[in-house]
């Protein structure tokens, strides 16, 4: 999976170009996130604005990506679609991550 990393002000944003992080995409997502977190030493802001659907495999992969950052760094989630937000809310994972409505909102919080 091709994830791109860019700087937005002080934030390191990871853009997900895929429409789905599902069972068919979870392993590729996890591997791509590991490559990014291995060479990064700051918090990551995962931009999910293109992602319309996450199933439990995708959720597990996002949790794995967060754990891979270790205790010093955080994984922030940005721009969850209603269906994606629903999965996070029902599994109570919305309380585990820091959620932001948009990159602009994340900038306002951390800029």
């Amino acid at each position: 999976m091709n994830l791109t990393v860019r700087r937005v002000g002080p934030l390191k944003v990871v853009d997900v170009p895929e429409k789905r992080i599902d069972a068919a995409a979870a392993i590729a997502f996890k591997d791509a996130m590991r490559d990014i977190s291995d060479v990064s030493c700051s918090d990551l802001f995962l931009n999910l604005e293109n992602v319309g659907f996450v199933d439990s495999s995708g959720l597990g992969a996002i949790v794995a990506a967060m754990k891979n950052l270790g205790p010093e760094r955080r994984l922030h989630l940005v721009a969850l679609s209603p269906a994606v937000e629903k999965v996070f809310r029902l599994t109570r994972m919305d309380s585990v991550f820091t959620l932001h409505d948009s990159i602009d909102a994340a900038l306002a919080d951390h800029g």
Binding site: S56, G60, V63, A64, V87, S95, V96
Partner: peptide
């Protein structure tokens, strides 16, 4: 426990909830 951060086991919880 969300602090235990499971990477699986969400599926049936979602099915039964919805």
């Amino acid at each position: 426990d969300p602090q235990a951060l499971p990477e699986g086991g969400f599926g049936w919880h979602l099915i039964r909830s919805l």
